[in-house]
Design a binder for these strands. Structure first.
Length: 678
RNA sequence: GCGCCCGUAGCUCAGUUGGAUAGAGCAACGGAUUUCUAAUCCGUGGGUCGGGGGUUCGAAUCCCUCCGGGCGUGCCA
């Protein structure tokens, strides 16, 4: 039976608080226990007496003296000391440190970290790629940050429900369908990929308005002709070619996938350019049960398709299959990236895209109207939550239905939130998106609270993060201004790691080299992200993240590999490491490097706690970095294999636990692989 | 205009409800290798914590103000 103890800092905090309560009679005293700022003050310090003395207007030093009289920490620390204006300094007892190490050793799965006392069912909403787009750097942070949060929560025994809120509904829905139609026309009618040519022409003329107008007019003319050509009167919209094309789509989609991606970008680009040009396009609308050709502004086309689809109905049902095909192909790509990144997100298990909520959207709007929270405003349906103002100082709207009848992400997010609370029984919902969406989530939460869809027993939090920047300090893009594909970025990381392995350790087998390159390359990208404070932007640099010095994945992996090497060598020289660590009595650390490492090892639980409290993995990486630095000092000054048996045994223990912590933190909590040699 | 975030060493960044002398890495300079992986370690220099004011035993941290930057701000997500 293994016993698990709270981190020392929590034990001390509790005891000091108790003592403060006894002295002052005040219930909620705050002990403010932190790691000592300087080793000469001990291991921990309690600053709470000073803060409390201020509140009570008494002498802080005297209060501190009264507190330590009542303070019983004799099982954990040496007698406390008071310093300066009223710091209470605490030094861990060697026996406590050694006992803690023993417990960690006897509990390799948890390293003696107790699970949460009150597990909470938690929904984590993260990654959220878009349909018909390849994942790019913009998805990196949400995906891996969300993954680390899920891993940490699960480690602490919370029930986690991952929700990949895929962007598969809304405006881009119409764009995808239009893009598919272009691909169909290109293949079946024109027998050539005209949109590729058009796309390039539009791009290369982006500063020449006259030329753009001419190109758009040509595109419009072809579109009109194709559109009329694609009609079958008795069936309605786009049936002659497009209908047949959709029937075979599933079989050919892999082959034409690059075309679909390009056509999608073509439609997007066109949508950016068209407004203000006044070009009109032929389409049809059903009036009195009869289809009538009508002219509409070209730029309204994708929106029109979107609305048709959101309205559903028999006439609009042909796209359903197309939709599934595109989604399937997109998610296969995403799954590949997830596997490469080693994140615990799987399609379809964790997917619940925007489209999942489509039938709940009307109900969301209705219910808010019934409650009197949603009102008409300029033709749109809006909620005006308290405390939000626009530039004129007027109430800021949370728009849940557009004037053209379409729903927005506000509506979808409300429906999703309601579903998560009512159906998934979430008691905490964590949204991992970039900080630019802060206002949206603040308003979302305000509306959900006001509507009674999230009560006080449900915690809502928006975990924000900054942008990934290029070396020039602007958002990371290719030279031509496009988002960098995640796939390409990761491949390059692996390639760079590979060449380092090749250089440093050419004798390894092909398999080993590739395995190390992958672990190091992917690990480097993820670790670099984790080690930055999530709220700030950071500059992406392969050279820095793959450096062997400093707070990088390779440095941690190297430390781990060195320990493994020691253990292998020890075995080779006839030491049975496991047997040696069976009996852990009579240990006594004498070397400063041993003591520093031992004391730092037992603080792993503290680091996990801090990282989870604020969803900041950089606390974990900071801890790992300090741990490995302390290990390096130990490694340099304390030989293991050549040490006398008693000394060797306790040094092997430190090695074993250091490796255990590195591996657990990297692999279990951050999803970064370790390697036995590198 | 208003709101949110940010400004820490030449560069990239940490800094745990306000705590003792503000820390790393890179770059620069100087050392260490017959030694368990030198993909390493040790040392040196480098700071008006954007400026100013305030709160107090004590401020990079909290408040005010100014300067500089990023993002957001009614029908994208």
């Amino acid at each position: 039976m293994t016993s698990r103890m709270k981190p020392a800092i929590d034990i001390i905090d509790q005891r000091v608080r108790h003592a403060m309560r006894q002295v002052t009679g005040i219930e909620d005293c705050s002990a403010i226990v932190t790691p000592a700022t300087n080793a000469k003050f001990g291991d921990y310090q309690a600053n709470g007496a000073m803060a409390l003395a201020k509140k009570m207007k008494t002498n802080p030093r005297k209060l501190a003296e009264q507190v330590i009289e009542k303070l019983d920490v004799s099982d954990v620390c040496q007698p406390p000391e008071i310093a300066g204006p009223g710091f209470i300094n605490l030094r861990l007892k060697p026996e406590f440190v050694i006992e803690s190490l023993r417990q960690m050793h006897s509990d390799p799965a948890r390293l003696s970290i107790p699970p949460a006392e009150k597990p909470r069912k938690t929904v984590v909403d993260y990654s959220s790629p878009n349909i018909a787009k390849q994942m790019h750097v913009g998805h990196l942070r949400s995906t891996i940050l969300g993954d680390a949060i899920c891993r940490m929560l699960e480690f602490m025994n919370h029930k986690v429900i991952r929700q990949n809120h895929i962007g598969d509904w809304g405006t881009q829905f119409g764009k995808v369908i239009l893009a598919l139609w272009h691909v169909c026309m290109a293949i079946d009618v024109h027998k050539k990929s005209y949109f590729k040519n058009d796309f390039e022409r539009l791009q290369s003329n982006k500063d020449n308005k006259n030329e753009l107008y001419k190109i758009c007019m040509q595109i419009r003319d072809r579109h009109d002709k194709d559109y009329i050509n694609d009609q079958l009167e008795e069936f309605g919209d786009a049936k002659k070619y497009f209908g047949r094309f959709l029937e075979k789509l599933d079989d050919i989609i892999d082959e034409i996938w690059p075309d679909i991606l390009l056509a999608y970008r073509f439609v997007n680009l066109l949508d950016d350019i068209l407004p203000g040009m006044g070009l009109r396009i032929i389409t049809r609308e059903k009036k009195d049960n009869e289809w009538k050709p009508v002219e509409r502004p070209y730029e309204h086309l994708t929106r029109k398709i979107t609305v048709m689809l959101q309205q559903g109905g028999e006439e609009n049902c042909q796209e359903e299959d197309a939709w599934h095909s595109v989604k399937k192909a997109t998610m296969e790509h995403c799954d590949y990236i997830y596997q490469l990144l080693n994140v615990t997100l799987e399609h379809p298990r964790d997917s619940r895209g925007e489209s999942f909520y489509k039938d709940m959207l009307a109900g969301v709007v209705e219910d808010l109207q019934k409650q009197g929270l949603a009102v008409d405003s300029d033709g749109a349906v809006c909620v005006f939550p308290e405390g939000f103002k626009n530039k004129e100082g007027d109430p800021l709207p949370f728009i849940i239905k557009k004037s053209d009848g379409a729903y927005l992400y506000a509506t979808t997010d409300l429906a999703a939130l309601r579903y998560r609370v009512d159906e998934l029984k979430a008691r905490r919902i964590i949204y991992v998106t970039d900080s630019r969406q802060k206002l949206h989530f603040d308003m979302l939460f305000a509306v959900a609270r006001k509507a009674g869809w999230a009560r006080d027993d449900v915690e809502l939090s928006h975990v924000t993060f900054g942008s990934v920047l290029g070396e020039d300090g602007t958002p990371l893009k290719t030279r031509s201004g496009e988002n960098i594909k995640l796939r390409e970025l990761l491949d390059e990381a692996i390639g760079r790691a590979r060449s380092v392995v090749e250089q440093k350790n050419p004798d390894l087998s092909e398999d080993q080299k590739q395995q190390i390159a992958k672990a190091v390359g992917i690990g480097a990208v993820k670790y670099a992200d984790y080690s930055n404070n999530r709220t700030s932007d950071y500059i992406f640099s392969f050279d820095k993240m793959l450096a062997m010095d400093g707070n990088t994945a390779p440095y941690m992996q190297y430390a781990y590999a060195r320990i493994k090497s020691i253990q292998r060598k020890a075995e080779k020289s006839g030491v049975d490491v496991e047997a040696e660590l069976k009996d852990l009595t009579g240990i006594e650390f004498t070397q400063p490097d041993e003591i520093a490492l031992a004391k730092y090892l037992i603080r792993y639980g503290e680091a996990v706690e801090m990282a989870l409290a604020d969803y900041r993995p950089n606390f974990l990486t900071n801890y790992l970095y300090e741990l490995t630095q302390k290990f390096s000092g130990f490694y340099t000054n304390c030989p293991v294999i050549k040490a006398p048996p008693d000394s060797r045994r306790q040094r092997l223990l430190l090695c074993e636990l250091t490796a255990g912590v590195i591996k657990h933190c990297l692999r279990e909590l951050l999803g970064i692989e370790v390697v036995e040699q590198m």
